[in-house]
Amino acid sequence: MNWFSLFLDPNTQWILMGSMLLGLSSGVIGSFAYLRKQSLMGDALSHAALPGVCLAYMLTGTKSIFFFLIGAIIAGILATAAIGYITRNSRIKQDSALGIILTVFFGVGIVLLTQIQHSNSGNQSGLDKFLFGHAASMVKLDVYTIAGISAVLVVLCFLFFKEFKLLSFDPGFAKGIGLPTILLDQFMMLLIVTAVVIGIQAVGVVLMAALLITPAVAARYWTEKLHVMVILAGLFGAFSGFVGTVVSSMVNNLPTGPLIVLSATVLFIISVLAAPNRGVLAKTRLRVSAKSEYQPLTNQRVKEKSL
């Protein structure tokens, strides 16, 4: 009974808990990023986090989530500022600016990462896991940190739900009634960066963007209510975290990140196909039934004409 013993192992329980909470919080935050059409921003922020994290490690010599967070936030601020600057002061559109900045930051990150691996400090093992994640390398303290930060993220989204909703739907109106939209915008950015940083160990920077967006997109298919969508996205994220972690701990040395993302993608495909109203199957069924109901009418008309 390989399966069963896996769940009894307290270590695995911790790791599972960590991945699920991570999926939950990133699904919740990702919903707002997706609705604000900032899916690519999540991608840029997660890639931009890599050089920040590497620099934080080089300067402090420790693998502490707190220092990583500071590094990633600084890198994230730099990246968004650069994207904003390019978009405002040149003819380059935001998508191209994102493409440029994302790759530059990621490139710098890879250079730094290689540098760290060739350095002599003994503590560097596991840093290469930043790219694709390795949930099994999480220790109890990491899980505590992830759980704590995830809980804070979810609570913040709950508290600011009304404001985030208005900001996502109609930022102009939000500004008109006096919401500090620029501040809220930065705040949301900060939440995304935070989710990326706590996801580095389990999922890795490359695929964190997928864990932010995929559950949200899948959830959108099932509902027309924002709060339901946010909750669903959180659940989808948690489920992906669970499945990805279980599979990666059963098969030796498979990175966790890709497996979590693959599980999220499976959920997404199921949603696209099977969701009521918005799903492909439901739409096809609707079209076919509309056609068959219309058919006798047209036949009749033809008959009348021929008469």
Binding site: K165, L166, F169, F173, R220, T223, K225, L226
Partner: peptide, 16 residues
Amino acid sequence: DFPTDALDVVMMGRYG
């Protein structure tokens, strides 16, 4: 194409 209904949008007028 935002996940909300008409009443909810009108309610946004109360947020201020």
